[in-house]
Design a protein around this nucleic acid. Sequence first.
DNA 1: TATGGTTGTCTATATTAATAGACATTATGG
DNA 2: CCATAATGTCTATTAATATAGACAACCATA
Lengths: 246, 246
Amino acid sequence: MDTGQTNVHRQNGVALWRQIADRIRASIANGDYDATGKVPPEFTLAAQFGVNRHTVRSALAALAQEGIVRSVQGRGTLIERKERLNFPITRRTRFSEGIGDQAREKEGLLLHSAEEPASADLSARLQIPEGAPVIRLETLRKADRRPVSRSTAWFPADRFGGIKEAYGKTGSITVAFRMLGLSDYLRVSTEVTATHADGADLADLQLSPGAIILVARALNTDPEGVPVQYAVSRFPADMVQFTIEN
Amino acid sequence: MDTGQTNVHRQNGVALWRQIADRIRASIANGDYDATGKVPPEFTLAAQFGVNRHTVRSALAALAQEGIVRSVQGRGTLIERKERLNFPITRRTRFSEGIGDQAREKEGLLLHSAEEPASADLSARLQIPEGAPVIRLETLRKADRRPVSRSTAWFPADRFGGIKEAYGKTGSITVAFRMLGLSDYLRVSTEVTATHADGADLADLQLSPGAIILVARALNTDPEGVPVQYAVSRFPADMVQFTIEN
DNA sequence: TATGGTTGTCTATATTAATAGACATTATGG
DNA sequence: CCATAATGTCTATTAATATAGACAACCATA
């Protein structure tokens, strides 16, 4: 289905074991090993990638660290977790509904919040004067105890002064908005990019450094088209995919 | 605007110089150095990232290799190229129109094509029997002489037998469809993921290994809702972004 | 219970990545 | 034209990455 066989590359600033770990992770997510529930033997993988068995072991150790596989002496390397959450992006995108029944337990944590003046960029997006007060919410979302997104969201302070408390209590933007008198809102635009995770995101999303994140920059408005929220959300790229249905 | 300062990480399988190169590339794309048109001095960057100057030099050498910067002794490191093409994803997404006036020169190259039986996955997506003949087109798209996407597209062979020749001549799917009697088509779904570029994509997209690509899996139908094309397109993540307008 | 297949551990060595320091070379501005 | 601020080059050293080989420990099963 995908574009097929590929090789690992040397001297490119990305260690072989990391490239191999990424490839194996992708294969697991792709269901390539579903028949056995196990990753192929280290010796086989080493031959496949054209590297030493020890290099493969480094890769598997990294995946074990992430909780994706578990090696058992004598048996093999068992697949523990295999997931790629799907997030539909529509005019009515909501985080918790988006996950739907893909996870049993959903959670929204408020990490931090502050009131600050709107930057030039932000004022343009929210259509408010530059320097006008906005409330910034730093949140972490989890599904089945695993972090799936780290978000930074801004709201016009004059209209949504109580958003911090409302979100802190409920863990849901949708519910928080409702508590503040906004019963409905619409997603008008989403910009998607990808980059390496860095700094705090690495820690918050419990990623191994070098991991890739999908970045979604989203603007939500009320039904009248007045911007109510601008958010930058980061997702582990190997755990999620976005689906745009038109 | 963005989430702020971040640090580079050691012993993570990604070399410091590559992490730093990625960060500088992102800063350039973000316009952080627009005031001077230059990257900060090596010494400054070294202090900023907490690494040796030689490490920064490795990063800058990689960016110079990509054609993004050019170092001039005595003057500094000049920014040569700064771009992030924006691709709107809508119900009427078309590649060439999507680029619009973001590039002067647009080009579509046919790398390879073949007729083959539909896999299980593909038959489900195109709603045709498994094993039914499909035509696969491997294409490379360029803007201003730089490759911006590498695509693999499948078409039902019975309906679009001449798609290879039509695309080869015109370099445009839209025009090729028109030549084959399909005057309009619609994008019904797009799945977006991100991963490391590998193998042929690296070469075709002229990326330095370890680079990130955005992957868009798209399904197009005719106005009646009959699938006409399924395509997997890979874009250099540091050059493009997707915008979903709802 | 014996055997083959698999992961775990150890030693040794070569290559690459990163640090450290010194100094040469070149461009710019006073 | 000189001082300053950059990049360019060189040597040396340490740490991380990768290869190679050997063998132990463990599991499943015939």
